[in-house]
Design a protein around this nucleic acid. Sequence first.
DNA 1: CAGCGCACGGCAATCGTTTGCCATTTTTTG
DNA 2: CAAAAAATGGCAAACGATTGCCGTGCGCTG
Lengths: 334, 334
Amino acid sequence: MSAAPRARKRATITDVAREAGVAPSTVSRAFTVPGRVNAVTRQHVLEVAERLGYAPNAAARALESGRTNTLALLVPDITNPFFAGVIKGAERSAAASGRTLVLADSQESAAGEARIVRRLGPAVDGFVLAASRIPDDDLRRIAELDAVTLVNRAVRGISCVVADYEAGTRQIVDHLASLGHRSLLFLGGPPESWSGARRWAGLRTAASERGMQVRRFGPYSPTLGGGAAAADAAVAADATAVVCHNDMLAIGVLRRLGERGVAVPGRMSVIGFDNVFGSELCRPSLTTLAERPEDAGARAIEMLGRQAYGGVAVADELVLPTQLVVRESTGAAR
Amino acid sequence: MSAAPRARKRATITDVAREAGVAPSTVSRAFTVPGRVNAVTRQHVLEVAERLGYAPNAAARALESGRTNTLALLVPDITNPFFAGVIKGAERSAAASGRTLVLADSQESAAGEARIVRRLGPAVDGFVLAASRIPDDDLRRIAELDAVTLVNRAVRGISCVVADYEAGTRQIVDHLASLGHRSLLFLGGPPESWSGARRWAGLRTAASERGMQVRRFGPYSPTLGGGAAAADAAVAADATAVVCHNDMLAIGVLRRLGERGVAVPGRMSVIGFDNVFGSELCRPSLTTLAERPEDAGARAIEMLGRQAYGGVAVADELVLPTQLVVRESTGAAR
DNA sequence: CAGCGCACGGCAATCGTTTGCCATTTTTTG
DNA sequence: CAAAAAATGGCAAACGATTGCCGTGCGCTG
């Protein structure tokens, strides 16, 4: 009595076979190896299947073939609009190739991520790990067992899709320099964040080439809420230009600066990363480095599919361009 | 050679059994019916399993039990921040009860939705259909075969989680009336949208009680892009207060009004629905009826779980409160 | 001390599909 | 026209886990 209350049983391949007067194997082949059965037989089988509302049982199929036709996407935080874009692109791409997408939120935790991978491993054909927090070595171990593609993270031997932070940070530094800024303050995010590290590294390099001073504060929570502390620290340090780990943090910073009556960009310029929805809506609107989350998601799924189904073993690296979107939050140095 | 390049095989229950010197059934029970095996045996089995990195194969488990421990969530548009909230809540709730969440985007199409349901049906234990576009009768047919919970849609005989639009629209009308508005214009979204219909119905009722005039324009695309046409129509109609199908449309309207130099709220007040991230960031910030997308997602998954696993057959209806968030986009009638 | 019941572990059937192999029929080829 | 080859369909064995049933050995009761 505790069983599911589902009434009608679903039609199975056997039902279709009986009804169509053929063997189950023929039904199976009618669906999966069209050339293997006679055209009229096939047509008949398909009609019967349609009439019975038959849809192949993915679990049974997976058991035999070892393939689930399912790919998993792990993100650190679903709420972040950047990852929402990645999710969207991944979903589109998966749907386009007839595959199912499983979504999981690791809640910004490496341990959570690993747990999910372990649990989902046997049930999916591969993982897209977005902004993964898992250490390099553990990632390699995972990649031995499952097809893996990373987004905004690079590890030798594993396929990945990354944004061109080198060019991007150079654009940021050039932009600030051209506005007369002689120094910038980086407000950092989670220490395990690979993209955070790359952003910081890029800023340092580009700044040193231009003889600009750089400092780094943080880590701050890469969320709206993290902005208050970050903004206060920036004010205390009397920064003229701050570059934030991401847009969410940057918007939080803008809000706090607004509350405290600090003029942006008059007294302080603010830059973010990601160009999330909202960065052009906030006041002042945010100058930010745009990535292409949807592209990243879609391409990652494609690369993962090639790995999981196409027999491609080489680790690809795809670098997506970035673009500086200049809005109101940056201006001439005081 | 076209097969997957995965090298190492995953450990199965048989491997664990052999390694631990017991029968596969004992391993199975060690995991699923702890009381059924001796404590020391169980401990030993678990240790071996851990050492071998064993994780049960969900497909195989599903085949026998008929349960996949997987639930599906269908949304019309992943990009919409409202649904992003629903996704987040659903994901949390599913993860909390140890279940996997499959996500699909129906791209605002009833046909697409139906196709996905058909394909995923055998592979999941139930569906949460958010803002479904599928006609009532078809939904009932689906609900006969699968556990189903609707979000922001109500159909007799099917469980659902809906926002309290009756109270919500009353708040909107009261708010506008108290500002001296004598009429309002509703800028509608997709005709198949159930929540759109409820919003409109609520506005009409509440307005008539207060002797306020109401009109309806549309349908417009419930996106930023849809706002231009909607705004132009509102200006042409010389409306003093417009209520938009959702926040995305409302923000689009605000933007267009800004471009055209129409003062908000001086010349026209604007209200949205959903309180998405961005509605408080835009200029002027948007007065909107807040729902609880995360709650809705989480509760829907809970209700679905009760249906799919708990043997509960009755169709529940859960009404979540709504709340008017007054910001800058509404003001006294001119 | 006989007898009963319980704890524990193993056997084997089962879920729905795929797929290697074989049997039969049809077609092609020389 | 015979023989070889191709086309077509069926049989049955997997895939990995669950679970009803049975057997064994132990402890307890009367």
